[in-house]
């Protein structure tokens, strides 16, 4: 769909949207901590988890949605549907799953599911109202995957918040992430330990214009 088509789709969608139907997407490369953050948000406000977290890349291979999450901060309320997406990558090697101790048949199935997950995540970009890009703060932010996701959102005029996750780790470097994407708000958090999570919730109000 062309850029004009995207604008038209967004305009029509906004005309018929009901209150509380904001789709907030969590996007990023594999193992950045998207599901850990989704679980943190959902546990904080609904008391239930969204998905399984593991150290093996591509653990999330399907779009996972948690509907009607309402967050509150400083007298304000924001209700959204949280969309946790599979990590976007340019390569998926089933042998990486073998190295993680998974049997060959299962490894090949996982790889196939992971490729489908990436395709779905890209497809869903058009449907998002706002997106949180979850990056591993210990890794190099200048990757083509990151640039491609953020560039696509920019072209579609979808508001973006960048999260540099894993700031509990010594190697994390928020300044490097800020330097890579100077035009965006970057918030350093630890989704695992809840560090700086209040600032993150506050930033969600800003990107959703609430």
């Amino acid at each position: 769909m062309g850029i004009f088509g995207n604008f038209l789709k967004k305009f029509l969608k906004s005309l018929f949207k009901k209150k509380g139907e904001i789709k907030l997407g969590l996007y990023g490369p594999p193992n950045g901590g998207k599901t850990t953050l989704a679980n943190k948000i959902s546990m904080d406000w609904l008391g239930e988890e969204v998905g399984i977290v593991s150290g093996i890349a591509h653990e999330t291979r399907e779009i996972q949605i948690k509907e009607q999450i309402t967050i509150k901060s400083k007298g304000k309320e924001l209700t959204f549907n949280l969309v946790d997406t599979p990590g976007i990558a340019t390569k998926i090697d089933y042998e990486d799953f073998l190295k993680a101790g998974i049997k060959e048949k299962e490894a090949k199935t996982r790889a196939k599911e992971a490729t489908k997950g990436v395709i779905d995540a890209i497809k869903w970009l058009d449907d998002m109202d706002a997106v949180v890009i979850v990056l591993d703060g210990t890794k190099d932010p200048y990757s083509q995957v990151n640039i491609t996701i953020i560039g696509n959102l920019e072209a579609r005029k979808i508001p973006v918040l960048i999260v540099a996750n894993k700031i509990d780790l010594k190697k994390a470097d928020i300044k490097k992430v800020q330097a890579a994407f100077p035009q965006y708000d970057v918030i350093g958090i630890s989704a695992k330990y809840g560090k700086n999570i209040e600032d993150f919730y506050e930033a969600l109000f800003k990107i959703t214009n609430q």
Binding site: I88, A89, T90, K91, I92, D93, Y94, K108, A111, T115, K116, V118, I119, I122, L125, Q144, V145, I147, T148, I149, G151, N152, E154, A155
Partner: peptide
């Protein structure tokens, strides 16, 4: 272009199998 890059990733994912593991790209 930015849409071409995401389309390249999408198409790459469709073609991945036991032999073809995907791509590396940089500009």
């Amino acid at each position: 272009g930015i849409n071409e890059k995401s389309e390249l990733i999408r198409k790459t994912m469709e073609e991945i199998d036991d032999k073809f593991k995907g791509i590396e790209i940089e500009d």
